[in-house]
Design a protein around this nucleic acid. Sequence first.
DNA 1: TTAAGTATTATGTGCATACATAATTACATG
DNA 2: CATGTAATTATGTATGCACATAATACTTAA
Lengths: 233, 233
Amino acid sequence: MSPAAVNSWQAVQEEVLRRIRVRAWKPGEMIPNEAELAREFGCARATVNRALRTLAEAGVLDRKRRAGTRVTLQPISKAIIDIPVIRREIEDRNQRYGYAMTFRRIEPAPLSVRARLRAASDMRLLHLIAVHLADARPYVVEDRWINLDAGPKAEQVDFSRISANEWLLANAPYTHGDLSISAEHLRAEEAELLDIDASGAALTITRTTWNGAQAVTTVRLSYPPGYRLNTAL
Amino acid sequence: MSPAAVNSWQAVQEEVLRRIRVRAWKPGEMIPNEAELAREFGCARATVNRALRTLAEAGVLDRKRRAGTRVTLQPISKAIIDIPVIRREIEDRNQRYGYAMTFRRIEPAPLSVRARLRAASDMRLLHLIAVHLADARPYVVEDRWINLDAGPKAEQVDFSRISANEWLLANAPYTHGDLSISAEHLRAEEAELLDIDASGAALTITRTTWNGAQAVTTVRLSYPPGYRLNTAL
DNA sequence: TTAAGTATTATGTGCATACATAATTACATG
DNA sequence: CATGTAATTATGTATGCACATAATACTTAA
């Protein structure tokens, strides 16, 4: 069979993946350089470049200038987990979204929270606890601290009507953040809000965002037992 | 100040991000089209294209042909979690890697596992349980089922010497897979292997991989309480 | 008035070319 | 032999151009 021109970057990508899969190019091995592949596939080098670059971003290939491209020896699977706005997460499941704030106070934060925010002890923090509901049933508990020094307007907002999640998204820009996932025992009050037995193991997502050097907010989301984060590889 | 030429795609990207951050372009709003931006920045349209395309992949922009580009209203944060080979995960922490297989038997799988593998009841499955150690201390328990119909060689391999994780990576190609993260109570035997109190909440990662329509393997990794998956936003 | 067809337009992609940059190799020099 | 330097090379990126494609806006016909 004659080598049909593989001249879209997706086609190149698929052909490369195929060769890796059938072990024509083995893990750790070098693959031909872009110019050669372009010649073989009958396309421009830029096209090969885009295909290989994308595969490198996906962790399938290792590329170094001058050194060339090789098949990743131990591919780190990158699980891309979409963390949507909770309202959307629920509405995408075709459930009715609900929200209830159960606590609001400007108060000093415990050490663990201050550490997350790298906060001086005099930072003014608004503490909110709320439950997000799916079809009127508790879906996730949100325990949030908002830095009022970063966005003083937050003090005036009625967070019993609009979720902090959404208000901040629209009003408090951030430059970067960090996120951590862990399994934790539910605290008694959280279990109560979720309306479940306190003995459960809760998937917990902690997210802190920054605007430059200034902490914006930190949240701890506690999902009830059984909740799963799914992703394709 | 004169508009210095912004002529690398990273520079364009940063400028775009800056404008979004300072709310010059507000969430939901259209931004100028590629040609205009190229003119403004003094660079080629392809350069703008790459910058915007990358931002769209990151979820910051929404792009549609003909319709144009707008700032994402509710950016879905994509948490990219690297799931490395466990040996590497441990060695990257500058700890000594160890491995011990504690169970190996070809046996019929329970329903939950068969469901994950979409397995007929006559599929031959090798069941392995192993512990990965960091500095001789239990790090994670691995409960794995390998489809011998997909790769019969696995039956001959001495998995007490090499971890299934690494052997499969090198010998059993897969086309796709799925991964799910949840919080679960440790089973008694797992708690024992991890050498901890059984009451802990364990972060559990379940991963199943496929080669075409054929299941290759499914693993359940149980990490002890306190383990965190971290990522930057 | 509505439906079908057409023009327009912004993004998506391919190509050829040029040059930049990092990393390696080869070489020269002490 | 060690070491610094220059040549080489594969990838990285910018550019100008062309055309493809999807989505919208507009026009025309029933």
